[in-house]
Design a binder for these strands. Structure first.
Length: 491
RNA sequence: GGUACCAUGGCCGAGUGGUUAGGCAGCGGUCUGCAAAACCGUGUACAGCAGUUCGAAUCUGCUUGGUACCUCCA
């Protein structure tokens, strides 16, 4: 391990040194999407935040098992007990099998994640594939007396649980307040108390997704899948559980209660929550109707967008804020991210053009450590990025001959940029990576620009400008340098 | 109403009891056939009020404003 890593643990609301249960192994569980619609900008935040954590833990030498679930059953609309299953509703509207909906949106989710360069998790379990495990867990909770059956459904007895344990410890709520403030919903006669939540729901006749169980033909409650699947793949106690802040209550609170009620142990050692992306200061969310899907961002087709933003711009935009801060969406902010990222990637590329000197005029020896320190402080990516920008200035100075680097320092710069920019932040040059024939056509472009150099040498500005203007019109950006040229594809 | 949290320069966003965050935009300059890029220079920001302190934007209290959760939401 490089330096001690500190992570903010929502359980006690402070940064704690991260010490895995079974070094060098780390178990990481993150709440994944309910696949009933296209992923929006809000989904990118946890995906990228925990991708950053996944990458950083691996770089730090840990062997990480990263589990991110797919919710394909049990997630209800409206209130937690009488609403329609989200997947089933979409299936009914589209006249498709529920699993067709799941597959369709899951494929699209994967495409978006690939575009964002989010590394796939180690295991991506589906809730519907773990009904047996969920039923087993319900039995344990029933046996321990923390749940009751009512008309074919099984509910978690929050009041009973809170006599022995602290329900609300994660979100800072207390049971009396919950009892007084929880709204009365229709159709709750089955429950002893409004705060109780469903572990198993008997399926109504029109409900199309259901499985047999000791209590009824039905389906599992939403909170249960994460408890059951994290236990199955990461063990009764594991290191880190992540997700969006909006899931803290009730979802994560219920997870804690379920694990304790079933096995007597709290499953999670470090709870991490990413903050929301806001739009005009308000949370971006499905129910608010103010969300922008990732595909719309990539294509620019949305009323709020001035232009298209590349997946890497989105990724960089998210990394430029610390994960626990809200991040406000605006065209101005995204355009700034786009320019900033370009500057960073250009400099990385230009390290190869640096000519070594006997010694360096600037000290970059501590760059690696500064970036490490920033990351070890609860994944402070914006600070690490700021340090990289400092190095960019030095690299550019060296390119114009105003600074010098030794061969050793050039190698160190290349190595640090490769490590942080590419391996840890997951930022890459898209034009180059997305085009298999890049090498061939780049040579053709080089050839044209060599001809332009020739024309320039002959002071044939007509030819020289013609080549530049036509390449520009085709989407190339041409830059003249001290003793040659640079180009890149901008679209 | 309860709980958690936030308020930083034109925009986005770090951080800290006394020293430049960083990016984008702007302004001035250098370079260039022109342009672009790059480089150099440039901004006395930390909601308000009171307190603690030698010193606070950073700690404490109050006020104001905002957000999230309490019903599905990343």
């Amino acid at each position: 391990m490089v330096h001690p890593l500190y992570l903010y643990n929502t359980l006690d609301r402070k940064k704690e040194q991260f010490i895995p249960l079974h070094e060098p192994f780390v178990g990481l569980y993150v709440c994944g999407p309910t696949v009933y619609g296209d992923a929006h900008l809000g989904h990118a935040r946890p995906a990228i935040t925990f991708d950053l954590l996944f990458r950083y833990l691996k770089y730090s030498g840990y062997k990480v098992r990263y589990v991110r679930n797919i919710t394909d059953v049990g997630h209800l609309e409206n209130d937690a007990d009488e609403g329609e299953d989200k997947i089933a509703k979409k299936a009914r509207l589209e006249q498709l099998e529920p699993m067709e909906i799941v597959q369709y949106y899951l494929n699209r989710y994967h495409q978006a994640m690939d575009a964002l360069n989010v590394i796939p998790p180690s295991i991506e379990p589906h809730a519907s594939g773990h009904i047996i495990e969920q039923i087993a867990m319900i039995k344990e909770i029933l046996d321990n007396g923390f749940a009751y059956e009512s008309e074919g459904s099984v509910y978690f007895d929050v009041t009973k649980y809170s006599q022995k344990y602290n329900y609300g410890k994660l979100s800072g709520r207390n049971i009396e307040e919950l009892l007084n403030t929880t709204r009365d919903l229709d159709g709750q006669q089955e429950k002893r108390n409004s705060v109780d939540f469903a572990l198993w729901k008997k399926a109504s006749p029109e409900h199309i997704m259901h499985w047999p169980s000791p209590w009824s033909e039905g389906f599992p409650g939403w909170h249960l899948e994460c408890s059951a699947m994290s236990q199955k793949y990461l063990g009764e106690i594991f290191d880190i559980h992540g997700g969006g802040m909006d899931l803290m209550f009730p979802h994560h609170e219920c997870e804690i209660a379920q694990s304790v009620a079933a096995g007597g142990k709290e499953a999670v050692r470090y709870w991490m929550h990413n903050n929301m992306i806001t739009i005009n200061g308000q949370k971006m969310g499905k129910s608010l109707g103010n969300f922008i899907t990732l595909e719309e961002l990539f294509s620019g087709k949305h009323a709020l967008l001035d232009q298209a933003y590349s997946p890497m711009t989105i990724r960089f935009f998210i990394l430029q804020a610390q994960y626990r801060s809200t991040l406000d969406f605006s065209n101005e902010a995204l355009q700034a991210a786009e320019k900033g990222l370009e500057r960073l990637l250009d400099a990385f590329k230009n390290i190869d053009k640096l000519k070594p000197s006997a010694q360096s005029s600037v000290n970059i020896k501590d760059l690696r450590k500064k970036c490490d320190d920033a990351m070890n402080d609860d994944l402070n990516s914006p600070i690490a990025i700021a340090h990289l920008f400092d190095a960019v200035r030095h690299i550019n100075s060296a390119l114009t001959g105003q600074a010098t680097f030794s061969q050793e320092d050039i190698d160190e710069l290349r190595s640090v940029f490769q490590l942080f920019l590419v391996d840890i932040f997951g930022l890459k040059d898209e034009a180059k990576d997305n085009n298999a024939s890049y090498e061939s056509f780049s040579k053709a472009v080089d050839m044209l620009l060599e001809m332009r150099m020739q024309a320039k040498a002959n002071k044939d500005w007509t030819t020289s400008d013609k080549i530049r203007n036509e390449l520009t019109a085709l989407g190339f950006e041409i830059k003249d340098t001290k003793d040659g040229f640079e180009w890149k594809l901008t679209k």
